[in-house]
Design a binder for these strands. Sequence first.
DNA 1: CTGAAAGCGCTTACAG
DNA 2: CTGAAAGCGCTTACAG
Lengths: 346, 346
Amino acid sequence: MTLDAVARTAGVSAATASRALNGTARVREDLRTRVLLAAERLGYIPNAHAQALASAQSSVVGVICHDVGDPYFSAIASGVMRAAAARDLMVMLASTFRAPAREVAYVSTLRAHRARAILLIGSGFEDTAWERSMAAELGPYRSSGGRVAVVSRHRSLRVDTVLPENRAGAAELARALIGLGHRDFAVLTGPPSLTTVADRLRGFRDALAEHSIRLAADQVVEGAFTREGGYAAAAELLARGLRASCVFAVTDVMAVGALAALRESGLRVPEDLSLAGFDDVPIVRDLTPPLTTVALPLVRMGETVLDLALREPRGQRSRVERIAGEVLLRGSTAPWRGGTAPPGSE
Amino acid sequence: MTLDAVARTAGVSAATASRALNGTARVREDLRTRVLLAAERLGYIPNAHAQALASAQSSVVGVICHDVGDPYFSAIASGVMRAAAARDLMVMLASTFRAPAREVAYVSTLRAHRARAILLIGSGFEDTAWERSMAAELGPYRSSGGRVAVVSRHRSLRVDTVLPENRAGAAELARALIGLGHRDFAVLTGPPSLTTVADRLRGFRDALAEHSIRLAADQVVEGAFTREGGYAAAAELLARGLRASCVFAVTDVMAVGALAALRESGLRVPEDLSLAGFDDVPIVRDLTPPLTTVALPLVRMGETVLDLALREPRGQRSRVERIAGEVLLRGSTAPWRGGTAPPGSE
DNA sequence: CTGAAAGCGCTTACAG
DNA sequence: CTGAAAGCGCTTACAG
């Protein structure tokens, strides 16, 4: 079924059929009707590739995340999908399974598909080699009209960014925890090359420093950015000898794993140990106890990043949409030792 | 950057350049090298649309699910992504947000994109009108070489299917629960037009009937297929007057909502009431108590459905890959009233 | 408003 | 093994 066939059975030229079907130009009413009818009758479906080739623009946007199976990305992706549907765009989704090289390769593939926009979800890497090759892909893409937007800080990419305030959020969380009376902390952290990890750790540390609290080196344990990573990190922390009354896992997903590990070792949360995460992925409010965390509006961030990518740029500068995190004190954190905490928090 | 430009700077014809780049035919070694070098130097990226148009085949597969934000779909999608990556295929993902009409529309769009395969994830609808329009899309697509595969039962679609044994799984769960001594059950169910809901409900009911247990009409409450749906359904059940010692939510996601509602009303799980779900989505083992459920290998199902779609069909018959569910008795279900249950289960 | 024609960037018989 | 040429199925100036 081609346009030509439709045109022929409608008794018009392909040009007219195209215009009638797409509404790109005025077409005499009766011709229009005939074309539409013919298309309907023949079950005509346009060839998106031919359209893209002829018009030099496609209706797909590319989204690259680390793993759709992770609730953080799945929530953001959900927001992107919603925004894409509203604009009649299709989404090409790629999971890198956390391999930076694959991320670059996917950008290249997305360029081949002439994606109207490319969205990088998920933390950037503080890795010069990676940045260089990523920039090498993104540069030509953008100068040929492609739009790029990212979620999270990507150091030198200079692209439109939806920027969760990781540092401020972690700092505020730390202050709230201090407000509960805690003075000894441990941190379960992720791969240090991820900007998200670096920022959260730094914010947390800075806020502790405000109160002259130091984070002992052996109380900071690194793990993979997954539930299993959180589990292993917590186990390692216990093996090293826990000297904290409160543990901060830099993501909720890690916190979930940590909770399991702590439980298995016989520790009660929050009675023996408080635990906090970051992100507020959908499930953590349903844990027992519900997890204290820094809430990010993940779905909205997904909508925003697509909007940002597609919105007409006004100048040279890349735009940054800051997203504040909201500290949610829930059941997984308790006042220290039965509550010597001051009433007003902080 | 076009193929022609590469060919020209390499001093060969476009045909040769194409063959060298794609490895589709033998090319004299020195020419091949020159082409590859030229492409590299020019930063050549092929136009996937032109390739698809000229070769009449694309390298994308389409996936339609209800909502990527839901852990069930996100896990399956993760499996699809992995399988797609292994085959160097890109995935076009669509979320219908549970609107059947949108599902049909997406199939049409995917046809326009000449997707090599279309995967329908998520339950079918027992709705004749829907089936008719879906079949009207799928038929022409398949006879023009498109592959289709689905997860879950889609009544009359006659396509390759990854079929979780919902009925058998729910029946086995019921037997295990009866084995714990329970005799009074309530069910939190989803939209009855979904085949998944119908099958699970039926399997559960049938197994109860084997033991002459009837499910009272007012103890079966319908809710949306979401956490909120489960929450509301549980609340409604309580409002009607709970007369069960064990509640079965037809999906884990609903069970999570139900657990919250039960808790809020002051009921303890499993001391006052046992609760079970279905699917074993990643989080439920981390709930407190961990949820009893029927485990489905979701990620593997995602891999399987893509493999199935792409595997060369051998005959006319559609293939069915049955997936057994494994009953996992965890902490959310307890023996009835302190355990009159027989030792061996069942 | 309508149509003939060129062109989008590739691939692939078809000759050589 | 290599190249000239046709063709994939559209869109869109350009005339009329």
